[in-house]
């Protein structure tokens, strides 16, 4: 997981995780109501700025993680550009019909996907799941049954990846890959997915038993090893978003980059 990599702990790490998640979700919903192309372009730039400057990850790693974004951008935009409704035709060839409207609507969608991806990456790169769930228990009163199950589940991710390796090793030892034939692909798929899933279920079950043996019960009020509270950074975080959105709005009105307003088809 990204979260165990060496990183500089910037102020983004110190924000209350529940608050961070809430802000991100609000931003997400907010973006759904933005139909002005220039607004979304500036909004995306703001989000990228935050990611690049304050995620604490080296630029090289960020660049690597962003490669899929470009693919997402292109492919999200392309369907709408090629097949969207519009009146001002730029290009027409068979089923493909590119219009000015569909083009800018496609670009808008691409940027939308980019904002979501950037916000999501910023969150997941700067939040340790354990802190998130401790915070959700303390601030949102999430039932510990769910919180600890999630934490135990996330703990298992590296174990499952290692297990995948071990299953492979075991199959080599046991001579599984010696088998050949037309159905060998199906067989391989099955021989990895079934043990991995059934082993995960068994492991989850045993962990649940072990947790109950350690007196994990939901009735009483529990104490918390990590106390997650609020701090000045939370204020900084909110204020900086208010500022960034305001700036994006101002710039989209006064310094538009692209010559379009609302991208919806009337």
């Amino acid at each position: 997981m990204n979260l165990d990599l060496t990183i500089k702990k910037t102020w983004l790490y110190k924000i209350n995780p529940s608050l961070k998640l809430l802000v991100m979700v609000l931003l997400f919903i907010g973006v759904l109501f933005v139909h002005q192309l220039n607004m979304i372009v500036y909004g995306t730039l703001s989000a990228l700025l935050l990611l690049i400057l304050f995620s604490g990850h080296p630029p090289k790693r960020l660049a690597l993680l962003s490669i899929p974004f470009i693919i997402v951008f292109v492919s999200t935009a392309s369907s709408m550009i090629l097949f969207g409704k519009g009146d001002t035709t730029w290009f027409k060839w068979g089923l493909i019909h590119i219009t000015e409207e569909s083009f800018y609507r496609g670009i808008h969608l691409g940027f939308r996907a980019l904002v979501f991806a950037t916000l999501g990456l910023t969150f997941s790169l700067t939040t340790r799941p354990v802190y998130l769930f401790y915070s959700l228990m303390q601030q949102v009163k999430l039932n510990p049954k769910y919180a600890y199950s999630f934490m135990a589940g996330f703990r298992l991710i590296p174990i499952m990846i290692e297990e995948f390796q071990t299953i492979r090793n075991a199959m080599v030892v046991r001579g599984v890959q010696q088998q050949k034939g037309i159905r060998s692909f199906y067989f391989k798929l099955k021989s990895y997915s079934i043990p991995l899933l059934s082993q995960s279920i068994r492991r989850a079950h045993r962990i649940a038993v072990a947790m109950e043996a350690k007196r994990f019960s939901e009735v009483k009020k529990r104490t918390f090893y990590y106390k997650i509270g609020f701090s000045g950074y939370d204020v900084v975080f909110i204020v900086s978003w208010v500022f960034l959105i305001g700036a994006a709005y101002y710039l989209s009105l006064n310094v538009p980059i692209l010559p379009t307003g609302d991208v919806r088809y009337e």
Binding site: F154, A210, R215
Partner: peptide
């Protein structure tokens, strides 16, 4: 398969939390 947390301190803390 007796552990539910990723780190040594968190694992023991889990029990201590259960005991308030």
């Amino acid at each position: 398969t007796q552990f539910c947390m990723p780190y040594v301190d968190e694992e023991i803390a889990f029990v201590l939390e259960n005991l308030c």
